[in-house]
Design a protein around this nucleic acid. Structure first.
Lengths: 342, 342
DNA sequence: CGACACATTGACACCGGTGTCAATATGCTT
DNA sequence: AAGCATATTGACACCGGTGTCAATGTGTCG
């Protein structure tokens, strides 16, 4: 059945196994006749190189891993899809590893994971991508990585999108709709994206020359539940905000939920918008108006960058020197409109 | 830095590398002094066995893979969590692979994936777990697998839960609430679980001595969109059903969405229930009444069964001879109640 | 024709472990 | 004390590939 080895091919083709190795690796300096002969045997026998043997010899495993804490499940899922897609295209295996951001043994745990799998490279999802100790360990052990969503040239390659721009444009959109009292649900305080979102809100207000409603800024943690809780606070304020902007869709859906449970109608009584455009956003009623982040594309691009680096090939993507920032897009759906008579 | 090999340990401990191998594998017939001496060096050097070398020598990779098409993202996510958990506990790596159920090259594609990764075993998520050609290939290649959610002793080990029982109890619950015209959204026709659900509906009606409403049976495909579509059909019937039971929560949420978009109130105007209890079910308004399937536990148990099998250790779980069927549980939330005056 | 660059190929060691088997030491039986 | 079973250990080949280097063959130049 299986197990046609390089030795079998070599024997049948009447060459040394090194020559077979040359052929399967497309190396130069193999005569055309030899190459054809070997290829024929490979075809006939259905030979596939054993990745483990190769990995051992080359000290390169051909596996990468996606490391994630689980902030917004919908986000992770889309990201994973993009990563997986490029992995398939390039015949790389993708390991999955869940970890807990707050666990004290995190770095050691991940070190153990690397030892167990010998993954060549890692894709780090926020908030892991901001974790200095982790990056230090990876640098020390010379494990390649690409970070998602946290551009900071000093910390290494990253792919993400411009949260500040997204929040800025979304806020402008609400301001254009004539909302003035907008409630903001912040993201997780440990994540850089959170501060960038906040900067975007403020920027839009500043440009419009309207005083920023400091009292309508509520802490969130990027989770559904934190959105529910934040909305509960905001909806008790007087005057009640006419719109709520959450730093991600997962929380925006929580806001929606909170509004519904107090009998408020969206968008008649209050507008709700988010950022990301995850699958969930079109499963709730009403569909969420949001800034679409090309999450799957980001995952794809991250995998591309990592794998190209591992292969020693140049990155032929966008020429952005330090970080890839993919652009976002306003998706107008049904959860926001001009404030009504209340 | 890294790369303490078994040779290094052997040299420093003054023994042969085979003896070191014996120690790290906990083999018998090593004297206590030797074991201690070797252990001390292992501790001191921080030696970790290289999984690739081991895999090559033993012809066992210590990696398993989760193969999935993507029926209901929430389902997959919970499952993945359970699988990952047991993998972590047992130091196994988990590969992820997405595939398309309908792709004609599916079997060859998966075969290629196995060649690329040398995964020791596979966990198959429905509808893959029903795919005869796939199972044949795996048997032929002697790749171990555990199937999720499709008990059928002839096809190999499986872990799942009793869909028929779930649908049966859920239907009884609605009947007890005095619903009579219940609309049913069936699952994917290719998946066995779908027929079992249907059997459960019918069983409950038969027991109650009520004629089964054949006209209220609508085809679905386990996706959100198919739930939306099926509900559109059901809500146009006269008389309109007073309740809709969907074969999974993903579709039930679609039904909810459909009801909302026609201005119907749930549960005042119509009750909606589903099966699974995914994360989504508590993010929509109103929260979904559902039969909870212990999805994460199923994933955990599947990984357990597979890995124990690979390790040649006995399965010390439930003594169910052919398939593990974990029990389900009715979760009463806010999307169903007695039919109103209409 | 000799010297030399270059293309082609294979022998062999090596990556980091494990399996087999033989060598030696030890304890027990009679 | 001889005979034998058992415990402990290491030498060596092997898993399936790749890297190094030397040995050939071929073409070009002076």
């Amino acid at each position: 059945m299986s197990a046609v080895t390089i030795n079998d091919v070599a024997r049948q083709a009447g060459v040394s196994k090194k020559t077979v190795s040359r052929v399967i690796n497309n190396e130069a300096n193999v005569s055309v006749e030899t190459r054809d002969k070997v290829m024929a045997v490979i075809q006939a026998t259905g030979f596939k190189r054993n990745p483990l043997g190769m990995a051992l010899a080359k000290n390169r495993s051909l596996f990468i891993a996606l490391l994630a804490d689980n902030p917004s499940p919908g986000y992770l899922q889309k990201l994973q899809k993009g990563v997986l897609q490029y992995c398939s295209e390039s015949n790389m295996g993708l390991f999955l590893y869940d970890c807990s951001y707050r666990s004290p043994g995190l770095v050691a745990e991940i070190e153990g994971f690397i030892d167990n799998t010998l993954a060549d490279g890692l894709i780090l999802v926020p908030p892991l991508s901001d974790k200095k100790e982790l990056l230090d360990m990876l640098n020390r052990r010379k494990v390649a990585y690409v970070r998602i969503g946290a551009p900071d040239a000093a910390l290494g390659d990253s792919v993400g999108f411009d949260n500040q721009q997204a929040a800025y444009e979304l806020t402008r959109y609400l301001l254009r709709l004539k909302h003035k009292d907008i409630g903001f649900v912040l993201g997780h305080p440990d994540q850089g994206s959170s501060q960038r979102c906040e900067a975007g809100f403020r920027q839009a207000y500043a440009e419009a020359g309207i005083e920023f409603p400091e009292k309508l800024l509520v802490q969130g943690y990027y989770t559904f539940q934190s959105g529910v809780d934040a909305a509960a606070v905001l909806l008790n304020k007087t005057p009640r905000p006419t719109a709520i902007l959450a730093s991600n869709d997962e929380m925006a859906v929580g806001v929606l939920y909170s509004a519904h449970s107090r009998g408020l109608k969206v968008p008649d009584d209050i507008s709700v918008v988010g950022i990301d455009d995850i699958a969930l956003s079109t499963k709730v009623w009403p569909n969420l108006t949001t800034m679409r982040q090309p999450i799957t594309a980001i995952g794809y691009r991250a995998a591309y960058k990592l794998i190209r680096k591992l292969q020693g090939l140049p990155d032929e993507g966008p020429k952005n020197p330090e970080a890839d920032l993919l652009t976002c897009e306003l998706i107008v759906r049904d959860s926001a409109r001009e404030p009504g008579r209340n």
